[in-house]
């Protein structure tokens, strides 16, 4: 996940403070792993240095520095470019599940067992997401859908793999 482009995207709607950006990011994109403030300000200063954001206003007051950031024209172009660039598909092949199946295969364990265990877990998460979706707003629905489709894709891949391996095993035994 590119935090920089995500910030730019959030700023396109209007100038925000660093703190607001973090809150929005956490809420929409990273429920389980909130951003550290250090990460936020490092990212913002990089964007500032590259001319993709500018400081819109500095409010005097107590507490941390209260700078408000706005997106520049270059920033908008950058977001546009990022959105129009396809993600590398191999990203999903490198996840743990893949590693596990490959390991099961290599060590002669049944992929079907792995599937059953994993399905139960996937479905548990998917049920949770489905429930959250029912109570949430559009943004919630979008992010949950995103997760649901990926989880489903995982399961389908697992199912296909299990079927393929069964088929293969049948051929080997025959």
């Amino acid at each position: 996940m590119s935090i920089g482009q995500t910030f730019l995207g959030l700023l396109e709607a209007g100038p925000r403070h660093g703190y607001d950006l973090k809150r929005a990011y956490d809420e929409r994109f990273s429920h389980t792993r909130p951003l550290h403030f250090g990460q936020v300000y490092a990212t913002l200063s990089r964007l500032l240095k590259n001319g993709l954001v500018e400081i819109d206003a500095v409010e005097p007051g107590e507490g941390p520095e209260r700078k408000r950031y706005a997106i520049t024209a270059a920033g908008v172009t950058d977001v546009q470019q990022w959105l129009s660039q396809p993600e590398r598909p191999d990203l999903y092949l490198q996840n743990t599940l893949y590693t596990k199946v490959v390991l099961a295969l290599l060590t002669g364990r049944a992929a079907a067992d792995l599937l059953d265990i994993q399905r139960a877990e996937h479905l548990r998460v998917m049920r949770e997401l489905t429930r959250r979706k029912a109570g949430g707003d559009l943004a919630d629905q979008l992010i949950c859908d995103h997760a649901l489709f990926h989880l489903e894709a995982d399961l389908r891949w697992l199912e296909l793999t299990a079927a393929r391996l069964d088929d293969l095993a049948g051929k080997v035994r025959a």
Binding site: A112, D116, A120, H122, L123, M126, R127, T130, L148, E152
Partner: peptide, 23 residues
């Protein structure tokens, strides 16, 4: 056969080759 649809359930039962093998 769709997990996304099954996600509306409370629990699932899996049928494979005519046998119930779910949890």
């Amino acid at each position: 056969h769709e997990a996304r649809v099954a996600a509306y359930s409370d629990r699932e039962v899996v049928v494979r080759d005519g046998r119930t093998t779910g949890m």
